[in-house]
Design a protein around this nucleic acid. Sequence first.
DNA 1: CGCCTGCATGGCACGTTGTGTCACTTAGGC
DNA 2: GCCTAAGTGACACAACGTGCCATGCAGGCG
Lengths: 206, 206
Amino acid sequence: MDEKPPTLTERRKAATQLELAHAAARLFTDRGPDATTAEEIAAAGGVALRTFYRYFRTKEDAVAPLLTVGADRWRALLAASDRSLDPLTAIEHAIVEALSPTDDEIDGAHWMRGLLRAGADDPALMTVWYRVNRESEAKLHGVIAELSEPAIDAVTTRLVAAAATDAIRVAFETWAETDAPPHGPDGPAALAARNFRRLSAGLRDA
Amino acid sequence: MDEKPPTLTERRKAATQLELAHAAARLFTDRGPDATTAEEIAAAGGVALRTFYRYFRTKEDAVAPLLTVGADRWRALLAASDRSLDPLTAIEHAIVEALSPTDDEIDGAHWMRGLLRAGADDPALMTVWYRVNRESEAKLHGVIAELSEPAIDAVTTRLVAAAATDAIRVAFETWAETDAPPHGPDGPAALAARNFRRLSAGLRDA
DNA sequence: CGCCTGCATGGCACGTTGTGTCACTTAGGC
DNA sequence: GCCTAAGTGACACAACGTGCCATGCAGGCG
C-alpha cells in the first residue's frame, strides 16, 4: 500500500474530517440531527460553516466516515481472502474477522449504536445509513465479481452482494436495539455469522 | 375492503396527490430533480407551494406514491396467500402475480424506469427509492412474521424480509439499466423470480 | 531573499427548502 | 341558512447548501 501520506496537509485534512465526524456524532446522539445546525457542527470541529460544506455535501453526511470504516476494513480482508472458498463462506469469514477481534473499534461500535438509535426516528439520518450500505454493496459487488469465476451472471453476484450487505445490516440494526455488548453472543459479529448461515441454508429454517 | 372512500373531499385529496406525483415524475425525468423547484411541481399540480408541503415532506417525496403502489399491491396479495406454503415461495408467487399480469401498471413501470435512471446521478432522488424500500421492508416484515409460525426467531423473519426486498430491488435496478420490455423474460417479474430461486438455493449457483 | 503559484480556508450574498402562523374558503351535518 | 372542521393560500422566517472572491500559508524558482 502507500506508506507515504504525501503532503502533511492531507493528514491535517483527514484529521479535520474525523474531528467533524465525531462532533456530528456526539451532537446527533445528544439532541438529534434535527435540533443540530450545520454551523454548530462546524464550530465544534473548529472550522467555518463554509469549510464544513467543503468536507461534506450535507449535514448528515458528516457521520458517514464513522459508518464506513468498518465496512472498508471488512472488504479489504475479503479481497485478500482465500480464492478456493466459495464467496458466501469467504464473506462470512471476513466479516467475523473484521468485527470480532478487539481493538480500538469498540469506540466505533459505540458510535454505531448511538447513531442507529438516533436514526430510528430521523429519516434524514437513516438515509445516510442506507446510502453508506448501498455504496458498500456496490464496492462489495466489484470484489465479489472479481473473486468469483469470470463467467458468473452479473445479476447473481449483485444479489449476493445485496444479501451479504443485508445480513450485516440486519445484524447491526438488531443489535443496536438491545443493550448487548458488541463482542458477546448477541453482538453484531455473532448475529451476522448466524445470518450468513441462514442465507446458505436458503432461508429455510423458518 | 372499503367500497366507500367516504367523503368526496378525500377523493379530491388523493387525486391532487397523484397529480402532484405525476407532475414531479415528469419534471424529474425531464430535467432532473436538481433543476426542478418545488414551486414548479406545485404549479404543475395546480396548488400553492405551501399546499405542496402539506402533501409531501420533501420535494423528492412527491414521487413516492408512484414507487409504492406496486409494493403495496404485492404485500396485500402476500397477506392473503396460502398459509401452507413456506414464506419464500409464497413471496415469490405473490410478486409474480403482482407484476406479471397486464393492466394499467405498464404506466407505473414506465415511471419506474425513468425515475431509477434519473436517480442514478441524483443522490436526493435515490434517497427516496431507498426510503420506500426500507418502509416496504418494514411492512413486509410484519406480514411475514404473521405468516410464519409464531415461534420463529425475529431476526430470521427480518432477514427474510430484507432479502426478499433486495431480490425485487435488484431486479428492478437491473431491468432499469436495460431497454427490455417490462413483461418479457428480462422484465422485473422474471428477474425477481430468478432471484428468489437463487435465494432458495442458498446463493450457491455461483 | 523576494516572488509567485497552488491550495485550504473564511466571509459574504444569494436562491431554495421546509415550517409556523393567520386568514379565507368550501364541504357536509344540524 | 348556519356551523364546525378541514383544505387552502399568502406571508414571514430559520436553516440549508452554493457561488464568488479575498485572505493566509505552504513550497518551488529566479
